[in-house]
């Protein structure tokens, strides 16, 4: 999966600690494939008590359509290991999440699937959030590891170099592991 620069308006959900149960509630984990989860993304938050969409929820606003970047608060993706959270975000159309920090398992899952977890320094994140809330387009460039928004100097982020190579060069992790098959066999030989 090749990952080019992403240019898009943003959906902003700056609350901290958005957990994977909020991203995709457990009642939608009954599938045996990875598809179609986008319509249930943030299901508990997107709907009011009576089940109708909440027009004020960021994802439901008219200008959210087509947005490919989500700006979220610190510790995004905490909680369960469900990769469904990544599938749901991507199925809805999100390609990058920008937050001050990410939970470990979510970040690993996201990188595996080509959803970019972009961790910005807190001051940059605040600046970006202001621009994003003003509907300015944001450009996320994995190659240069920078985020751009008009009127500000480029903001730097870092992605694990190996994961970055996988994303930019389309390298396959399982393929990489297979390349080490003989070492794995030798290792297992030496174990009780």
């Amino acid at each position: 999966m090749r990952c080019e620069a992403i240019v898009s308006r943003c959906v902003c959900m700056p609350a901290a600690n958005i957990d994977t149960d909020q991203i995709i509630p457990a009642r939608f984990l009954r599938g045996v494939d990875c598809h179609g989860l986008g319509e249930h993304l943030f299901d508990g938050l997107r709907r009011r008590r009576d089940g109708t969409p909440d027009p004020y929820f960021p994802l439901n606003r008219a200008d959210a359509r087509g947005a490919r970047i989500l700006v979220a608060g610190r510790n995004f993706g905490c909680g369960s290991s469900r990769e469904h959270a990544v599938w749901a975000l991507m199925d809805w159309g999100i390609r990058a999440v920008i937050a001050p920090t990410f939970a470990d398992i979510f970040r690993a899952n996201a990188l595996k699937k080509g959803l970019l977890p972009v961790a910005l320094a807190e001051a940059d994140w605040i600046r970006l959030l202001q621009s994003a809330e003003a509907s300015q387009p944001v450009r996320v460039d994995l190659n240069a590891e920078t985020v751009h928004v008009a009127g500000h100097p480029a903001m730097a982020f870092a992605v694990d170099p190996f994961a970055r190579r996988c994303l930019l060069e389309g390298m396959d992790e399982l393929g990489y592991l297979l390349g080490h098959l003989s070492a794995i066999e030798a290792f297992e030989q030496g174990r009780p």
Binding site: I105, N109, K112, E173, L174, I184
Partner: peptide, 30 residues
């Protein structure tokens, strides 16, 4: 499953992984 951390009680390194990684372990045990 994220609560795999439970097994650390036995001085084992135990952690949760996503489904892509489940496939890696099934295929390669690594």
């Amino acid at each position: 499953d994220s609560h795999t951390s439970t097994h650390g009680a036995f001085a084992a390194l135990a952690f949760g992984i996503g489904t892509s990684e489940v496939a890696h372990v099934l295929a390669m045990q690594c």
